[in-house]
Simulated assay, not measured.
Amino acid sequence: MDKVPMTVRGEKKLREELDVLMKRRPIISQAIGEARELGDLKENAEYHAAREEQGICEAQIRDIEYKLSVAQVIDVTKMTNTGKVIFGTTVHLIDVETDDEVTYQIVGDDEADIKAGRISVNSPIARGLIGKEEGDEVVISTPGGQKEFEIEKVEYI
């Protein structure tokens, strides 16, 4: 089983989500019990809704437990800053064509959120940046075509 990289923040978020789901388990079980007391289960909408909610909750718990079991948590704050782009680093880029600055943190697939500036390690931009250093210029193939960036700064935060 291959390990999947994950940041410390990503692991914490998954553990919090798992905790919430585990606290919902007894509440759902209680709702099933109360609905069962209402009588005929074939036509009991409350019972069927509670059972469906239980199925969804259990599936989410299994999914999170699996993700945590295969996670390789990487804490870049404990690594020596060499100026090299690696998983977990925050990279400040300058678009060579427009001089616009963009900042991305390279994270695991489940943590990616482009609006928050977090890109998946498997995205075209991240794959083009991994292994490069501050000051390097990189050409990255994106869905919109070739983009040229200069790596202004690499942070291990």
Results as ranks from 00 to 15, higher is better:
Ser141Val: 07
Ile151Phe: 03
Glu152Pro: 01
Gly131Trp: 01
Lys3Arg: 13
Gly33Asn: 15
Arg62Tyr: 09
Lys67Asn: 09
Gln146Met: 14
Thr103Gly: 14
Gly33Glu: 12
Glu97Asn: 13
Leu129Tyr: 10
Ile27Thr: 13
Val96Leu: 01
Leu41Ser: 14
Arg9Cys: 09
Gly10His: 12
Arg118Tyr: 12
Asn44Thr: 08
Val8Thr: 14
Gln54Ala: 15
Ala35Arg: 02
Gln30Lys: 14
Lys42Thr: 05
Phe87Gly: 03
Val85Leu: 04
Asp63Arg: 15
Glu150Met: 05
Asp19Asn: 12
Asp2Ser: 14
Glu11Gly: 05
Val107Ser: 06
Leu41Lys: 13
Ala116Phe: 05
Ile114Ala: 09
Asp100His: 11
Phe87Cys: 03
Ala59Gln: 11
Arg127Ala: 03
Gly128Leu: 03
Ile64Val: 00
Lys67Thr: 09
Thr142Gly: 07
Ile125Ala: 04
Val20Ile: 14
Met1Leu: 11
Thr89Cys: 07
Asp110Lys: 09
Glu46Gly: 12
Gln60Thr: 12
Val20Trp: 07
Glu43Leu: 12
Ile106Cys: 00
Asp95Glu: 13
Gln146Glu: 14
Val20Asp: 09
Glu150Ile: 03
Ile28Arg: 06
Phe87Lys: 09
Ser123Phe: 06
Ala112Gly: 02
Glu65His: 05
Lys67Asp: 12
Lys12Asp: 13
Glu148Tyr: 08
Glu58Thr: 07
Tyr66Leu: 10
Thr103Tyr: 11
Thr7Ile: 09
Pro124Thr: 00
Val4Lys: 07
Gly135Ile: 02
Lys78Cys: 03
Gln146Phe: 12
Ala59His: 11
Glu137Pro: 06
Asn81Thr: 06
Ala31Pro: 03
Lys153Tyr: 11
Ile157Lys: 15
Ile94Asp: 12
Ile32Met: 07
Ile86Leu: 11
Ile130Asp: 02
Glu101Met: 06
Glu133Ala: 13
Val154Thr: 14
Glu53Ala: 02
Ile106Asp: 05
Phe87His: 08
Ser123Cys: 01
Glu53Thr: 02
Ile28Tyr: 05
Thr103Val: 15
Thr90Val: 02
Lys153Phe: 08
Gly33Cys: 07
Met6Tyr: 04
Ile74Ala: 08
Leu18Thr: 02
Glu134Val: 00
Gly55Trp: 07
Glu16Tyr: 12
